[in-house]
Design a protein around this nucleic acid. Structure first.
Lengths: 236, 236
DNA sequence: TGTGCACTTCAAGTATACAAGAGGAGGATT
DNA sequence: AATCCTCCTCTTGTATACTTGAAGTGCACA
């Protein structure tokens, strides 16, 4: 059983358990990357059961490493394991969507406070990302999503708390799945870009109040937009 | 291979992937519970490699479910997997300890804000736990740790955000390992009890400023105490 | 005597064989 | 005709056999 993998592993993938050096990943990591990419991209839509045979064919590795990958994905909240039934791609309810965004707001606000209070330097990268934002086309949703992700990730990273980064990363991965489903977010790309630049400038000058206000404004409206676009339902 | 498990699974264990109903767990869950308990209790100290053969003997299940449990534990941050080397119990550095407490402060502060701002009811359980606190003996470290845990968990839960609870739970599990190593925390049990009651009262009256102050005071001094007791090093 | 290479040994990685539960289809009985 | 029981099949759960890579040891050569 060594046919080529069916799922492409693109920008959306990442295996942080893989050790730094090696170019060749273990079968478990390949399975993890492939399945994770499939879940994030929507190839495996929420609510669907991933049969081990399917995962085996899709990733080109045998059941043992596939099952280890499934265990990991379940631990990270992408899957729900039903004993003797299989692994279901986790559904995100309206409540959970709002909870996710609430936690995200908490994380980013905390990062902003730490950066401003401790007068931490803001990496030049943040402004580069703003520039890049103005150059991408309005229709390139994938590029926009990726850019957006890197922008917010940079801010959280600038707070200098590794644990915070990890929490954020997992959060974002779960939100990506939802965002991916709503491909019409292009309508607000321009406004987002402006907000990003204002935020970057507020952070650079360590203006906590302003940075916090922008962050809150920026993130508070997101859940409603996403919920309406995906038809996921109304909040509690 | 069906000898009895060597590791007892006590109050410290929990398998949230196990489905609600079933009394009998799968071998994977038993392996997970056993290994997790072993890590949290210190039977597998930080830095130690857990060989699969060891884990197999300790939990009484074969390698396959053990490896799935290891994958899950690694995803949850308890282990670091070194390809072809094995699973090492994660070391907690001084920096990470402070990061963990910083994130914990963020989470609990957020919960406090949500409770006060949204005028959420504070469960009676919180006060019951305070009463219970006054009854336990000064030397029962395990009971104290458990009580402390339930108190803070109750607060976070009262914020009504499931995602927040999950983040907190994982955080606390990682901190438990450190706290367990420092068995001398008895010195401050009385003061902790007083703080808990003040906090519970502030929350019940939705006095955000006071509740936040107590939380911050309470959690800010912890990392230094733990660091000094465990000799884990000084902050960055 | 020191260094380097090869061999041995052992543990992790992977595949597969076997066991067992769950669900569905089909037949029989009411 | 409808319902219930039984059997079959399919998928997951578990164990084990096999493969591969890594590390340590010992011998040979410089």
């Amino acid at each position: 059983m060594n046919e080529p993998a069916l799922l492409s592993v693109d920008a959306v993938s990442e295996s942080n358990s893989r050790s730094e050096n090696d170019a060749i990943a273990t079968a478990r990591d390949r399975a993890y990357d492939g399945l994770r990419a499939g879940i994030l991209s929507g190839s495996f839509p929420p609510g669907e059961f991933i049969e081990e045979a399917t995962a085996t064919k899709a990733t080109g590795v045998s059941r043992t490493p596939v099952r280890e990958a499934l265990s990991r994905l379940a631990a990270e909240g992408f899957l729900v394991l039903h004993p003797r039934r299989g692994a279901m791609v986790k559904q995100i309810s309206a409540n959970e969507l709002f909870d996710l965004y609430d936690v995200r707001l908490m994380v980013e606000s905390h990062a902003v406070r730490r950066i401003c209070q401790e007068k931490r330097p803001v990496p030049k990268l943040l402004f580069d990302l703003c520039d890049e934002h103005e150059e991408i086309t309005m229709t390139d949703h994938l590029a926009f999503t990726d850019l957006n992700h890197r922008f917010h990730e940079t801010i959280v990273a600038a707070a200098g708390n590794a644990v915070l980064c990890q929490v954020f990363e997992n959060l974002r991965a779960n939100l990506t799945r939802v965002a991916m489903l709503s491909f019409q977010m292009g309508v607000r790309k321009k406004r987002e870009g402006l907000m990003h630049r204002s935020l970057a400038e507020a952070l650079a000058s360590h203006d906590e109040a302003k940075a916090l206000e922008i962050t809150t404004e920026h993130l508070s409206r997101m859940p409603r937009v996403v919920a309406s676009l995906t038809g996921i339902g109304q909040p509690k």
